[in-house]
């Protein structure tokens, strides 16, 4: 069973398709980075996954079930953008809210987390700092003991220290529970060390999806004389191509097979940010797993 499967998923607002033809399969236990520029449709995709929206085309299955149904809702947790909390509630009230609304609630976990972070239970949520509010929202989500945790821009509007703390808290919880996590961000550097699966969304379509390690291994950055570039581009998949008068820099997808190269080319690996930027610059290029590769 996959943690998340989307088939031809689409969503439109009026006549405008904000998400179109999204097919995607994420194995359980992964930490998925959903990356894309602002307005790419990340939030819409996440809302479809957690059942806040209904698709206008295709379908999505979460942990084998339909999103929004009672059985699925019990097993997921969602941290929406801006980390909504009831401002008039005390932190203790928020925990009570979680306990009353969720049968799998682990109050001990939430209280321990908040105690470690030094967040007083009696304080009104509205009077906490932004970082503390994010931690309370994350605690409420984690104490639900989800099998799939979905976070929409969890690091936006946080200062660098709070970003670090939130991310560390999240990773500790992932390591303890083995749950699947999907988190969106438009800043790739936030995700580089923590995620092992990449979904790149651009203009409402999925451009890249797959295991980050595999993706990095498949892509190379080649630098060589400009006059050799056309010949090479005919033989390999070029994702991004930037040239000066004399020099060409190509980000290519090797698909595993070894290509004999002219010795005048220098080659090196790419990092996640280079990879993402290269694809974003070329919206026509795509790197999607062939159907046979959709494996657990």
């Amino acid at each position: 069973m996959t943690a998340l499967t989307a088939t031809g998923l689409g969503k439109r607002y009026r006549r405008n398709w904000v998400l179109e033809g999204c097919s995607l399969s994420v194995p359980p236990g992964r930490v998925v980075a959903l990356v894309g520029p602002n307005g790419a449709g990340k939030t819409t995709l996440l809302h479809l996954v957690v059942g806040l929206l209904e698709p206008d085309a295709g379908s999505v299955a979460v942990l084998g079930g339909a999103p929004g149904e009672a059985d699925t809702l019990r097993r997921i947790a969602f941290l929406a953008q801006d980390k909504p909390l009831y401002e008039g509630f005390s932190v203790a009230d928020m925990l009570r809210f979680g306990a009353r609304m969720n049968p799998r609630w682990d109050g001990e976990l939430a209280r321990r987390r908040l105690a470690e972070l030094g967040i007083p239970l009696a304080r009104k949520v509205g009077r906490l700092s932004g970082g503390q509010q994010a931690q309370v929202a994350l605690s409420v989500a984690l104490a639900k003991r989800p099998d799939l945790l979905v976070l929409d821009e969890p690091l936006a509007n946080l200062d660098p220290l709070a970003r670090h703390d939130v991310m560390r808290g999240l990773m500790t919880a992932v390591a303890e529970s083995g749950m699947t996590v999907v988190l969106s961000s438009h800043v790739v550097s936030d995700l580089e060390d923590t995620c092992d699966w990449l979904v790149l969304l651009n203009r409402g379509r999925i451009q890249v999806a797959g295991d980050i390690e595999d993706l990095l291994a498949e892509h190379r950055l080649l630098t060589g004389p400009a006059d050799l570039a056309d010949g090479l581009a005919a033989r390999v998949d070029v994702v991004d191509d930037s040239r000066t008068d004399r020099q060409a820099t190509l980000l290519v997808r090797t698909r595993g097979e070894r290509q004999p190269l002219d010795p005048r080319w220098t080659t090196r690996g790419v990092d996640l940010e280079e990879l993402v930027l290269a694809y974003l610059r070329r919206p026509d290029a795509a790197s999607l797993p062939r159907p046979a590769l959709a494996r657990a």
């Binding site: 059942g51 009672a70 019990r74 909504p84 909390l85 609304m101 639900k144």
Partner: peptide, 13 residues
């Protein structure tokens, strides 16, 4: 306030 996204993603449909 966007809190419907919190309320409607708990275990209560």
């Amino acid at each position: 306030r966007g809190t419907h996204r919190l309320a409607w993603t708990q275990s209560v449909p």
